[in-house]
Nucleic acid binder design. Structure first.
Lengths: 336, 336
DNA sequence: TTGTATGCGTTATCAG
DNA sequence: CTGATAACGCATACAA
């Protein structure tokens, strides 16, 4: 690989001159700058950012850890992150825990060894001990979509209470009185918040909650199938289900129709996230939309601004979700 | 950040001793090794891989460039890449061209500046000039799923001719005689190969091909809608369509039913890739499956083995696709 | 405007 | 087994 020394030799100047020319330093003559750049081009020089990073104390890359890159929710965020990171010449180191939450701290260590300049975390659970350690370090990080209550860190999230209200009130407005809720993991803040709001709304409307009609599970289609099946089994079943994310909802959709409860006729269904699956023809899931791509962008913009300013300004950004009504919800009248 | 110097001072040995202890060199006493490791742990030391990479001439990261991370096809590959890369302590630098093919060479330059040890490319087009340049460098790279004919590079792909045959023969076996084809971009090798095989099979069975019933487009749902609409418009429409990927197929599915051609009753539909969308309830798309996750793994294993061996052995791996018959195909008899 | 010297944190070579 | 020293490629303070 060609280095500045090679260029220096070729042009007949010192390496430092080359360095300055290449980084457009003001204290250099136009002529040598041109010479240097031309030779650099000709030799196919690419600046070694490992070396540069070593002296500047920054690698020019951010770390991104997601819970499951095959879930469109996270790949949307990743796309947002990449968009702004690349625009500023930063690289993005991706780590996918693929559901194994215990890998997270390993990944964070990996990323810190690689000296990423900052971290974007989208898979925090409610009380991750390693986040406390991370907060003690000098590496800036930001939580996206998932909060961790045990640590005071910048975040960009969507108001899950509001989102869940939107969903449940929509069902109530349609006339539903028997509404089930299937959450994600109990140790994920957003999962809890959606559950809390669900219960609040029920209470506000004088609707009784049933133990059997609410439960935590996992943010997967398989979990949706499993819990959905239980919830729809005799003796009594809800006329509507609010699922804490779209993957769960898809699982419910599948199992409900298998069990002979067509949607929305026999069961109304609301998901959460509005991932690309939700708007597919034939699916047309009613769901709560989050600005995922946007969250990735905002988080990265914050991170890069912190990196340039050298000072760590707080960011507690709560975005608004909105309801997308499609074809999986209707009034319960039809079969009453 | 704590360095080996800090540890050296604390333990009372030289930095080189610390370095050796930390990398489990054989020429060091068990006692000092223990001491060093304990202090390192206590101080929260994390090896600076920028510095390490500088001297070892390797960054411990691979670059991955994909055409669209929100497409499950690519995120599956990415997951496979991450799985093996992380297992060997490598990082993964992700670049998502998000459809803008011209960004690719920029991304490759970015990744080379970051001194990634190797590249995994999944978005090559048929004749990318920058791949020729890349081939001249010392950076190993491998093409996944997409070939570039103008350069002799290692690759892992699925046999698209075979896959397309599977699809078209399935339709013919069902009794279809009027079969349309919607390809992806004309400059993507796999897109062409599927088209070629489609025409071959048609010819072998004595079926005439119609100009109007075949065309290139783009690997997106929007493109599927657009071309699908044209193809299904009067005066005559095919009884079956083979789409070069599942996203296109989904677009066709949508537009066909909008136009009053329920699937599979009035139109049989086959996709390609078997992305997660295809197996969704209500969708149940008949499609040609590729081992995506596996391709990511194989490519990364090859790359890492090349990196460890320092010698660049060839790899031309062609995997076999298989047909997954679901509910979007049936015999044309019903409406004839 | 340019060159020289120094250091970033590690590893490797060579003495001891 | 351990320590001093050089080197990786680049940026920068200081001299010239």
């Amino acid at each position: 690989m060609v280095t500045i020394k090679d260029i220096a030799r070729e042009v007949g100047v010192s390496p430092s001159t080359v360095s300055r020319a290449l980084s457009d330093s003001p204290l250099i003559s136009e002529k040598t700058r041109q010479n240097v750049k031309e030779v650099a081009q000709r030799l196919g020089y690419e600046r070694n950012e490992l070396a540069r990073g070593l002296v500047k104390g920054s690698s020019g890359a951010v770390g991104l850890v997601v819970a499951d890159i095959t879930n469109p929710f996270f790949s949307d965020i990743a796309q947002g992150v990449g968009e702004v990171a690349h625009r500023f010449g930063y690289g993005v180191m991706l780590c996918d825990t693929a559901g194994k939450a215990n890998r997270e701290s390993d990944y964070i260590r990996l990323l810190r060894r690689k000296r990423v300049d900052g971290l974007i975390l989208t898979s925090a659970t409610i009380n991750d001990p390693y986040l406390r350690d991370l907060a003690k370090t000098r590496t800036p990080f930001i939580l996206v979509s998932r909060l961790c209550r045990s640590v005071d860190a910048p975040y960009v999230v969507v108001d899950d209470r509001v989102g869940a209200r939107l969903a449940v009130e929509h069902l109530i407005n349609l006339g539903h009185q028997h509404i089930g809720f299937i959450g994600g993991p109990a140790d994920v803040q957003s999962s809890r918040d959606r559950m809390v709001a669900y219960r609040e709304v029920l209470q506000e409307h004088g609707l009784a909650e049933k133990e059997k009609w609410m439960g935590f599970s996992d943010f997967t289609q398989a979990a949706g199938r499993k819990v959905g099946r239980q919830m729809l089994s005799p003796p009594e079943r809800p006329s509507a289900i609010f699922a804490a994310n779209d993957m769960i909802a898809l699982g419910v959709l599948e199992v409900a129709e298998e069990m002979g409860f067509p949607i929305p006729d026999d069961l109304s269904l609301v998901g959460y996230n509005d991932i690309s699956y939700a708007s597919l023809p034939r699916i047309q899931l009613t769901t709560v939309a989050q600005p995922t791509f946007e969250m990735g962008k905002i988080a990265t913009e914050w991170l890069l601004s912190v990196l340039s300013k050298e000072e760590i300004l707080p960011l507690y950004r709560i975005l608004e979700p909105h309801l997308v009504v499609r074809s999986t919800t209707t009034c319960p009248c039809v079969d009453d």
